[in-house]
Amino acid sequence: MNKDILLGFLHFILIAAFQVFILNGMHFVGYINPLIYVWFILMLPTNTPKWAVLLLSFSMGFVVDMFSGYIGLHCAVLTFIGFIRPLFISVFFSGKEIESNLRPSIAEMGLSNFLPYLAILVFIHHFLYFTFEIFSFAEIFKTLFRIVLSSISTILVILLFDFLFFKQKK
């Protein structure tokens, strides 16, 4: 358990730093803005208490907010993701798997299960994020374009990192 907390703390710092200092400063094509900090919430072990998931989503959102100028936006959206996560966990994992504290990843779930889990939550997150960021119907097609492109880029980056940093079972 202690190891999990320490590891979680490390993930928190690394992912937040990567998001804030590297991805936020990057610029591809103009519409693509990968928001990989969602990954931190998605990959918390299945047995993590619900209150901890909520508090962690709130704090991760707040930290990312602090560095992007407009406080509250990442925070509100990520807290919502933290709130609906248990629902998805119960859909994608059996009761026994939840008990054994799996970490949602390609290694534990297989790509065919992990990808839908990741894609749905990332899409919900990006949909809310970009809708609230722009908050106007005037640019609706542009917004949809941003949502789709950014979701795809986020999913690809997370899959790549998951593949690189977590040991794959044979």
Binding site: W51, L54, Y70, G72, A76, F80, F83
Partner: peptide
């Protein structure tokens, strides 16, 4: 239901900050 209350509290706080902004 603590979990739902906690969510409403945190979400409410986040929205409060946005409105302040």
């Amino acid at each position: 239901y603590y979990y739902i209350f906690l969510f409403i509290l945190l979400e409410g706080f986040a929205i409060y900050i946005i409105s302040q902004n």
